[in-house]
Design a protein around this nucleic acid. Structure first.
Lengths: 298, 298
DNA sequence: CTTCTCGATACCCTACAGGTATCATCGGCA
DNA sequence: TGCCGATGATACCTGTAGGGTATCGAGAAG
């Protein structure tokens, strides 16, 4: 049996007349007769009673008509859904995000993606940079978000946005009272740094900036993520350089201050990382959305 | 697209290897490659990623695999069900029965049919002889039960059983006290006859029997069916000849008595009637069951 | 570097879907 | 009653496409 048989059968059943059905199918009458005969022979069931006025369904034929219509609808639906999946419009995208970076850019980007591809189920997995890389290679995620990513042979990196750095300062701290903060002044104040874990990371960025300005920071504490860092600032552990987006963390007793004499690379990137060999149309759609986001926000 | 494509696709998806899938399908590898390519081209979707180790489903491919399996299962089910329908094992049978004749033979026969063909839904329609014939011609029923059916050009009649006649007598009636009742004695006693309506019917049977014995019955009342007839007997309207099966009607004040000197045709048939041109396998199955029933009960 | 395994390609052959011509049958109608 | 028209069935031809064999190209493995 063949989908053609089903198509022909439904046409004949609906027209109750082989000639008309043949015309509707754009074939001539004899082949249609033969196909129907074949179908009946293969099933071993008489589907039609032949009358001088045309073809009339038997009870078995009526049942088969329902089934045939059902199957044909299902085939249509399957192709349609598969095509949507092939265009990245339907399916699932596993995304790795880092600890506290669910701030500003990532939610906005995910929201934009959801709007463009409402039938793609986005699943977020919180994991560190090293875990993201491992998960990418094991195909547990298709894309990861992180900062300060280093090039890798099998993974591609694409910058999503850059963020200026701000200084998180305890409200009672002398620097909070100054109208202007110069970067070099930070050498006199204990700093909270983050994240711990896989290097290079944001920590190295900050230490590098200090080194460029000719000093070593006074490290009061290293913590895992920005949220903890700002919490320690609130607790008086010192100041902390954070990306712009961290200002969404409004802790009582913490104020954010701009640095006036920013060195040229006084910003940090937010990038996404994915397998070079990943041909998934959903990933392509996601990266396209990310690209648009980047263009809109720069 | 074609069911073959689905079969091939599922095999490749399951084997993750075109060569093995080809072996499983008993074809050689190149045609299988081509069929998969055709399928992908027709859908416009890459279903597999080709690796040096074999074929790996894409996300769209995974979805299509589910759909394909589903469709294939449905096709199998459709053929199976249609075949059962074609063998008369699945479907619906509309049966016309007459007023009060839901006694003895018909329920037993229907029960036997249900046991042999549990998936055939039997729908009973109570209708008179004339209504049955009309309903048969209009195909609202496939078979009807009745007595004293006359041959018709387009309808076939098949006897199901015969029943001896008994006399329903009021308990207080003089005949009830006699040890023996001879048929000729009935000429002295008012009788209830049934059914009214289309002739020839059971009424004519009784009148004919009386005529054969050389008398005209004293008709006290004509009623629509045996139940009403026996009820009138209970009410003292007279005696009433009824088929054997009517003894299942146990009215208080009514007793059934045998006639001793029965004439040779002192019985009435129960037959079924159906369209000569009806090729329905369900009807055939039903008639076969009826035939067996007849053989078992004679 | 060789070898093995995978899918892809090239080319041939045959089966079968589809075409035309024609037949058989049954109702309707003059 | 017999002709005509409509219906599905049959006979036969043709071209497409599905399946076969032989072979290639690319990676992985040794």
């Amino acid at each position: 049996m063949d989908l053609r048989h089903l198509r022909y059968f439904v046409a004949v059943a609906e027209e109750e007349n082989i000639g008309r059905a043949a015309a509707r199918l754009h074939i001539s009458q004899p082949p249609l007769t033969r196909q129907i005969q074949q179908l009946e022979e293969e099933l071993g069931v008489t589907l039609f009673t032949r009358t001088p006025r045309g073809m009339e369904l038997t009870q078995a034929g009526e049942l088969f008509l329902e089934e045939a219509r059902n199957i044909r609808a299902l085939v249509e639906q399957a192709t349609e859904r598969t095509q949507r999946a092939g265009q990245g419009k339907l399916g699932r995208l596993d995304v790795g995000i880092f600890g506290s970076a669910i701030l500003d850019a990532i939610p906005k980007l995910l929201l934009a993606f959801r709007n463009r591809y409402p039938d793609v189920k986005v699943v977020l997995h919180t994991m560190t940079k090293a875990e993201q890389i491992e998960a990418l290679r094991q195909r547990r995620i298709s894309v990861g978000f992180n900062r300060m990513l280093s090039p890798l042979a099998d993974l591609e990196i694409k910058q999503v946005t850059t963020e200026a750095l701000l200084l998180a300062v305890p409200a009672e701290h002398p620097l909070a009272a100054q109208p202007v903060i110069r970067f070099a002044e930070l050498q006199d104040h204990p700093m909270v740094l983050f994240p711990t874990g896989a290097r290079p990371s944001f920590i190295d960025k900050v230490i590098g900036l200090c080194a460029d300005s000719g000093f070593q920071p006074l490290i009061s504490q290293e913590v895992g993520d920005a949220v903890t860092g700002v919490a320690l600032v609130a607790g008086g552990f010192g100041v902390c350089l954070v990306p712009d987006s961290a200002t969404t963390l409004q802790f009582p007793g913490v104020v954010y201050r701009r640095i006036t004499d920013t060195p040229p690379n006084f910003y940090v990137d937010l990038s996404c990382i994915y397998r070079k060999d990943d041909q998934s149309p959903i990933l392509a759609a996601f990266l396209d959305t990310a690209e648009r986001y980047r263009e809109e926000t720069t």
